[in-house]
Computed example of a mutant assay.
Amino acid sequence: MNTIIANKLSQIIESKESKENNVFKPNRQFFKDVEIGQKRFWQLVRNEKNLTILEMKRLASYFGVHILELHDFTLKYLSEDNPISQKNKLDYKKYGLVKS
């Protein structure tokens, strides 16, 4: 039996399922909306591949969450008021990290 390590995407899907009280079954329109193929999507859910920034952005938009909720970094290191972020002058808007 293979053990799958839960990632942020699978946790968001589980949260969506529990809120809506039904199983998330992506259809063709979903894959078209997020611009991710079916095979790649399930690889991401099973934690076999890493999300790209664009994939995070599209999935965050679809699921109505902030893009950083899909990332496994500790969020305290990416906050705008963090001195390290200010020192490196991370452009949050450029990379789509600011929730619109």
Rank of each mutant, 00 (worst) to 15 (best):
12 I>F: 04
25 K>G: 00
44 L>V: 11
26 P>E: 04
68 L>T: 12
50 N>M: 12
58 R>L: 13
52 T>P: 08
95 Y>M: 06
65 V>G: 07
93 K>V: 14
92 Y>P: 08
36 I>E: 06
19 K>L: 15
42 W>L: 05
7 N>A: 12
92 Y>F: 15
52 T>R: 11
43 Q>M: 05
59 L>K: 10
46 R>Q: 09
68 L>V: 08
1 M>F: 14
40 R>D: 02
90 L>P: 06
30 F>E: 06
43 Q>N: 12
54 L>W: 01
26 P>T: 07
7 N>W: 09
7 N>M: 14
7 N>Q: 09
3 T>N: 15
99 K>W: 15
19 K>C: 11
20 E>T: 07
81 D>E: 08
22 N>E: 12
96 G>C: 13
6 A>L: 14
94 K>H: 08
61 S>L: 11
35 E>L: 13
59 L>Q: 07
31 F>A: 03
41 F>K: 01
51 L>F: 01
34 V>W: 08
52 T>I: 10
71 H>W: 15
65 V>P: 04
5 I>N: 11
43 Q>P: 00
78 L>R: 11
79 S>H: 03
99 K>N: 15
90 L>T: 14
33 D>Y: 01
74 T>R: 12
75 L>R: 10
36 I>S: 02
84 I>D: 01
18 S>N: 04
13 I>S: 11
20 E>F: 03
57 K>M: 07
28 R>E: 09
18 S>A: 08
9 L>E: 13
62 Y>T: 05
21 N>T: 03
74 T>G: 03
100 S>T: 11
83 P>H: 04
46 R>W: 00
17 E>Q: 14
72 D>M: 04
60 A>Y: 05
2 N>V: 15
100 S>N: 15
42 W>S: 08
92 Y>Q: 06
4 I>F: 09
25 K>F: 09
28 R>S: 13
38 Q>M: 08
87 K>Q: 11
15 S>W: 03
28 R>A: 12
27 N>I: 04
96 G>S: 13
62 Y>N: 07
1 M>L: 15
14 E>N: 08
